[in-house]
């Protein structure tokens, strides 16, 4: 139940998000670079560009623009972490043995790098 609630909350947040992410202490370039690497390993195969990327295809089919996560500027660390740890639709959960908390922070830093303050 708890999972479902959290996912629904995150989903609502994601879909209604046209506002800018809250300002936070900006991550440094090293962390963004690390986040890029972790993203490439764990997220790109589903959310990247090109054919055969089910995450991208699913977001596109549901009207999300842009559908590629790397191109977005509206994601917040909270939302990113909620999806990674709780999953959504056919996206499964990811465990700390796969993506550690530190790696997840780095992914968040990478995916929010272009957010307007």
């Amino acid at each position: 139940m708890k999972k479902a609630r959290a996912v629904r909350a995150a989903l609502v947040l994601l879909c209604s998000m046209s506002f800018a992410a809250a300002a936070f202490a900006g991550p440094d370039d090293a962390q963004i670079e690390k986040g890029h690497q972790v993203y490439n390993k764990w997220c790109f195969p589903c959310h990247g560009t090109g054919a055969g990327k089910p995450g991208t295809a699913s977001l596109a089919a549901r009207g999300q623009k842009p559908a590629v996560l790397e191109e977005r500027t509206d994601l917040t660390p909270t939302v990113i972490k909620a999806f990674v740890r709780h999953g959504v639709l056919f996206m499964p959960t990811f465990r700390k043995t796969e993506i550690s908390d530190a790696d997840l922070d780095a992914i968040a830093a990478y995916l929010t790098r272009n957010n307007k303050p």
Binding site: C46, A51, G52, P54, A57, S58, A60, L89
Partner: peptide
């Protein structure tokens, strides 16, 4: 690849 996860629909829950 992960393309097989496209087997359901965009709204597939698994």
């Amino acid at each position: 690849s992960l393309s097989v996860f496209g087997v359901g629909s965009a709204r597939s829950e698994g």
